[in-house]
């Protein structure tokens, strides 16, 4: 049986097993997206509207000082971060849905460590985040945003999106484990997403905020994602906090969320 030790198994075998179980969960999610890709496309409509409508209008506001580039340059990474957040925050709802359907039992009764299940789901959510990124890059390029396409920057953008998707989807999973029903989640989800979005540097700089809001924005992981994306996506990009600090902040938030979600996930099926 799987747990039995045989002398030929290397010391690294448990790492491989763990990766297999994480991949089992992610691969199932990705397969479902392949069966029904319409969802990926329909989810991209909202951020495109933000860029086209909100971005065009706000670009004409005088006195909105956003640093070197245009407001549209400033906005594009913020909208990418926003769409990653909005997509990821639905993950808790789908966890409750899976519990109601019974599918979650299949995962919970398997010998896979709960953390592998949580990480597998989190990684799957980044596939959606990355597909949003492709659409937003295309749209921003057409609108004349000063994007950088240097490969090392694109690679780091991918890292930021994967981490942020994983972080916010796992956060959403925690909320789902607390509220447990779809109806309550819908209420709480709205209530949480908007403050995370508006108390961040996504659509205006932190320097414009009143002091109390600045403190919240500095504790908000979305601010670090936006800062990282702004630095990497734009050829004129300059980091406010430093890329290493941005990454560290996201990593810390992600670890915290995974630890908490790992403890709480089994509660959903009880």
């Amino acid at each position: 049986m799987s747990m039995e030790l045989s002398p030929r198994r290397s010391v690294l075998a448990p790492v491989g097993d763990y990766a297999t179980q994480v991949w089992a969960v992610s691969a199932a999610e990705v397969t479902k997206l392949r069966h029904d890709p319409i969802e990926l496309i329909s989810r991209a409509v909202q951020p495109v509207l933000w860029l086209l409508l909100f971005g065009q209008v706000m670009a004409h506001v005088r006195g909105l000082s956003v640093g070197a580039g245009s407001y549209l340059d400033f906005l594009a990474p913020g909208i990418l971060a926003q769409s990653v957040l909005f997509v990821a925050i639905f993950y808790g709802l789908s966890a409750i849905w899976e519990r109601d359907l019974g599918v979650l039992h299949r995962y919970m009764v398997s010998p896979a460590p709960r953390s592998a299940l949580v990480i597998g789901k989190a990684l799957a959510s980044s596939v959606r985040g990355l597909s949003q990124a492709i659409v937003i890059y295309l749209c921003a390029a057409l609108m004349g945003v000063g994007l950088s396409f240097r490969p090392e920057r694109i690679a780091l953008v991918v890292v930021f999106i994967v981490m942020a998707s994983a972080l916010f989807s796992t956060f959403s999973l925690i909320i789902a484990c607390i509220v447990k029903t779809r109806e309550r989640f819908m209420g709480v989800g709205q209530f949480l997403t908007m403050p995370i979005f508006f108390a961040s540097n996504a659509i205006y700089p932190i320097s414009l905020m009143p002091t109390w809001l600045r403190a919240i924005a500095r504790a908000n992981p979305l601010s670090y994602e936006v800062d990282g994306l702004r630095t990497l996506m734009l050829s004129s990009g300059q980091s406010q906090f430093g890329l290493a600090f941005d990454l560290a902040a996201l990593a810390l938030g992600l670890c915290l969320c995974v630890v908490v979600a790992t403890r709480m996930y089994p509660r959903l099926t009880q």
């Binding site: 297999t20 969960v25 199932a28 398997s110 010998p111 896979a112």
Partner: peptide, 10 residues
């Protein structure tokens, strides 16, 4: 089935 096979480390 493949999902289960992976979770059970076949």
């Amino acid at each position: 089935m493949i999902l289960s096979a992976r979770l059970y480390l076949i």
